[in-house]
Simulated scan of single mutants.
Amino acid sequence: MPGAPAGASCRLYRDEQGRADGAPGVGVLRAALDSAKECCDDQLLDPIGRAGRGRRAPAERGLRTVHQAVLRHFATTGSAPSTSDLEPVAAEAGRTARDVLAELAAEDFLALDTEDRVRVAYPFSAVETPHRVRLGNGVEAWSMCAIDALGIAAMLDQDVRVTSSDPVSGHPVTVSFTSGAARWEPEGAVVFVGRRPARGPAADVCCDALNFFADRTTAETWARRHPDIPGRVTDQAEAVAIAERTFGPLLAEK
């Protein structure tokens, strides 16, 4: 009607003070956008955090003790343990190492190769990846992705140096953790967090879509070149927070 205030159809919206209006206020729109972002983030991080269940294996059936033994073996040798290395730990739960590893793989705590050997134990990889990690104890190991690499310092509670490269420019990217503080080179480096729109273990659907970039420009270039991989650019603080939340608790005793 002429002279009537603008509105969206005949819907009424309430502002922060509860007053009715014909259009949503800025606060309402901001809340809706924040909610949509959280939903998107949940979907992106779903394989990283196992649908909110986390990456810390349950204590039952020897799962946690074997899982932690695998991670500690990587941390002390840089390589995956053999099945025979894990037999004494699995035996404490009255099981074989092969059975426990199969259950851990089925729940995506780790991944096995075609000969049932440990291929992946997030955050570590038994095979070469773009992400090399030098631990404070001098051991060097491969990490599955950028987020995994950033979580190792918190998981092991030791200094760590991560070396990677920008997939677009080839520019080296390093992150050095000293007493819990992270120093990034270059200073404008970022992380792209993405996942393929498919079901499966993190190693298959998201690990190659979680990369370091020298700056936001190259990250956005990579995203445009891979429209089939939904994701977003995260700054340094957020990337480290995601990593610490995901991997920090893995070796806790309780």
Rank of each mutant, 00 (worst) to 15 (best):
P47W: 07
T65C: 07
D166S: 12
R232H: 06
N137G: 10
P172H: 05
P88R: 00
W184Q: 11
S82H: 07
G52N: 00
D148T: 07
G151S: 08
T174A: 08
D99E: 15
P47H: 01
S84W: 11
R30K: 12
R55T: 08
L210D: 04
H226E: 00
T246S: 11
P5N: 01
A198I: 04
V160G: 00
G151M: 07
V89Y: 04
K37F: 00
G188A: 15
A106C: 08
E60H: 08
Q158R: 10
G138F: 14
Q17P: 05
R50Y: 03
V100R: 02
A121N: 04
G194P: 02
F74L: 03
L156R: 05
D157Q: 14
E253C: 09
S79P: 01
D21K: 03
P24H: 01
V26M: 08
K254Y: 09
A252R: 15
D99K: 14
R55E: 09
D235C: 12
A23M: 06
A149Q: 02
A4V: 01
C40M: 14
Y13F: 11
Q236N: 10
P123Q: 03
D15P: 02
D21S: 04
A105G: 03
D159Y: 12
E16A: 10
D148N: 11
A57C: 00
A80C: 07
A36Q: 08
A111W: 02
E103G: 06
S82I: 02
S165C: 14
D148K: 02
P81D: 05
T221P: 01
D42L: 06
I229E: 08
A6V: 02
R61L: 11
D42Y: 01
A31G: 09
F109K: 02
T83C: 15
V89I: 08
G25W: 03
R119P: 08
D21G: 07
L251C: 06
L86N: 05
T174F: 05
E238I: 04
T221D: 03
I147A: 09
R30Y: 10
I242S: 01
D116F: 15
T163S: 15
P201H: 06
V133N: 02
V160N: 06
A202F: 00
A111I: 07
H73S: 01
T178Y: 15
D21V: 06
M144P: 06
H67N: 08
L112S: 09
N211K: 11
A23N: 08
E244K: 13
F177Y: 11
Q158A: 11
M1F: 09
V160Y: 05
F177W: 10
A8Y: 13
R199L: 05
V28S: 12
V89D: 03
L251V: 02
A36Y: 06
S9M: 13
D85H: 06
S79K: 10
